[in-house]
Write a protein that binds this DNA or RNA. Structure first.
Lengths: 140, 140
DNA sequence: ATAATAAAGGATAATTAAGTCCGAATTTAT
DNA sequence: ATAAATTCGGACTTAATTATCCTTTATTAT
């Protein structure tokens, strides 16, 4: 459903949010350890999240990453930052010209699926208590 | 959401079903023209659909593909044949050990999304009249 | 100032997905 | 029989994603 990078990104954000609820800043090393992801690749994803204004970063000793406190971050923000909004916006069959007025054969059938997905991503905050509780389960 | 190959597969099946409702057998050339897909790649997908028992094939002049008439084919059959059941069955975060009894942080949030998707795929037949009406809109 | 620590960034490699090429096998019609 | 049309199958190429390596830059503490 999501790219591998996006799966990591969601885990990253949840882990950092959980850490932050305990007042802790999170380093690359710590988060890769926590979610079991390749370090260098994870660094790239963290960069994207910083550029996308979802995280703030600090260099040097005691450095690391924190949530951008200015807005409540939703899963929707994370997904669109890494994967874009294709899943919610594009035609399921990949057609350029598909819309409610000029629908592809399956357009109507998938309206509800997309709506449920969008609603889920928009209504779920990365700092949601229900998510943070599951913090321990971010790797196998 | 689906792989490119799976998008093609869905279009292929709808097109062949529409043709078949008019008693016509469909050739590789015709379907690639109809859906605007690369011919050689489309041939591979047709092979997969034949091996998966969703289609029957005939060689030689007047050859081509027809639906396997033994069962009513659902979108679910097409998707699982090409992409597998990852979308419906696997953990959204890619965890191996994620289940209702040992859920990842977002497990519950995505239950409804997966359920809506599965329900949509299972309840939609490729010969559904609503789909065949949209036959003309399978390429840009 | 210096050394140590951590993120930033660029270049490259490995893997997977998407797409192509071409010859073999099968069937139809002449 | 032969030629043409069509699917089958394997090997190959290209493009995108995932992952690694290594150097630079910024920050902290000594």
């Amino acid at each position: 459903m999501f790219s591998r990078a996006c799966e990591y990104a969601i885990k990253i954000m949840i882990y950092i949010a959980a850490n932050e609820s305990e007042g802790k800043r999170t380093s690359l090393k710590e988060v890769t350890q926590a979610i079991g992801s390749p370090e260098a690749f994870t660094a790239k994803i963290l960069q994207q999240l910083v550029r996308g204004k979802l995280l703030n970063s600090f260099r040097g000793p005691t450095g690391g990453f924190v949530l951008n406190g200015e807005k409540e971050i939703r899963l929707h923000d994370v997904v669109t930052t890494i994967d874009g909004d294709h899943l919610m916006e594009d035609c399921v069959l990949g057609l350029n010209e598909c819309s409610s007025s000029n629908p592809c054969p399956v357009h109507d059938k998938f309206l509800k699926v997309k709506e449920t997905l969008a609603e889920t991503l928009l209504s779920t905050m990365v700092s949601d208590q229900a998510l943070l509780k599951g913090k321990r389960i971010l790797r196998n």
